[in-house]
Design a protein around this nucleic acid. Sequence first.
DNA 1: ACCTGAACACCGTTCAAGT
DNA 2: ACCTGAACACCGTTCAAGT
Lengths: 203, 203
Amino acid sequence: MVAALELADMRGDFSMRALGERLGVDPMAVYRHFRDKDALLDALVDAALQDLEPGPHVAGTPIERLRQLCLDFRRALSAHPGVAHRLRVTLPTLGPHVIGLTEASLGLIHQAGVELAEAPRVFTLLIRFVTAGVEEEEQILAHNDGEQAWRAAVTSRYSSVSSGEYPHVTAMAAELDRSSFQDDFEYGLDLLLDAVARRGASA
Amino acid sequence: MVAALELADMRGDFSMRALGERLGVDPMAVYRHFRDKDALLDALVDAALQDLEPGPHVAGTPIERLRQLCLDFRRALSAHPGVAHRLRVTLPTLGPHVIGLTEASLGLIHQAGVELAEAPRVFTLLIRFVTAGVEEEEQILAHNDGEQAWRAAVTSRYSSVSSGEYPHVTAMAAELDRSSFQDDFEYGLDLLLDAVARRGASA
DNA sequence: ACCTGAACACCGTTCAAGT
DNA sequence: ACCTGAACACCGTTCAAGT
């Protein structure tokens, strides 16, 4: 049932009605299996993350493993539109895979040297960074013809401001063409993980 | 006109229809002044941020000023529901105050020692952190009876998992009652700014 | 007892009909 | 020419009416 839903999960946003059509079934039939749309989303979130939990066998330092986990996490979210948004605000209500992932992440953060009392805050920070980034990209792609077109639009917007009055904004416009969602993500991730490692080292 | 809208901006989410009612006017009258809802949101975003730009007179190191700016930014967003969401995905389309704020922020980041080429990425990271955080809080408050009730719900959820199998999750449950949105925000902000300062120092 | 689909209470937006 | 509000194309969800 969830498997069928996973298969049916679609590009962009979906509606209950569109989902019914996609499955070739009465739209209301879905309510037989899920209380409401949020419950369905929760099931989808858990399903999307089921391949993710990093066993203890994965090699590397805790920071390296955390990095890989975030990269995998990002990819999993990107493959399932809508999941990032739901996950970002309702982490706690979720299923077994999310709990397992939470446990593993907190463990890695602690292994990296962060005090137990601070680990939840670091965890929240990382989750927020990844999920918010994916959600941004989804929204951008939904309203533009691909990443390139969006970058071109932003560049031209920023290029139109007075370069005398706003030198940094002008410089940013030139920089935008050289980066990508993936690069920006990795830059931010590494900056965050540097800071985490430093908290760990000073403890 | 925008001033009237600022005044009329309401708790929680608003709709065009509710806005019309709130203003005691035909709901469609709004379309006389704004092309669509997004244009209205953009005007609201710019208005919400008009008190924010930090003049060069503000005291402190660049990092300290960046910190204060983020705190003010957060407060401004919290006072205007919906603005955080809109800002998070459509930064570039915006009005004069946002451009000014962008310029000031990039300047501070550069003054903190970050290379010009990296400043936009740091800027994006900070914006994402602040806006995503505010949006999360808004959503949580919209679906729960205040921060306390939400924390209690999450704590009880996490407390229900096996403490043997998920020791860190169990520990997190205990920690959750001790923190607050504001504390979590400042923890994350300081961690981020530490990392930014370090990038600056190493350049 | 179960399932269907009409109906309800919304939403953003358009546009014809009135002034 | 301007403004109003009925109407359109949606949405999530309920529930009465059919089997």
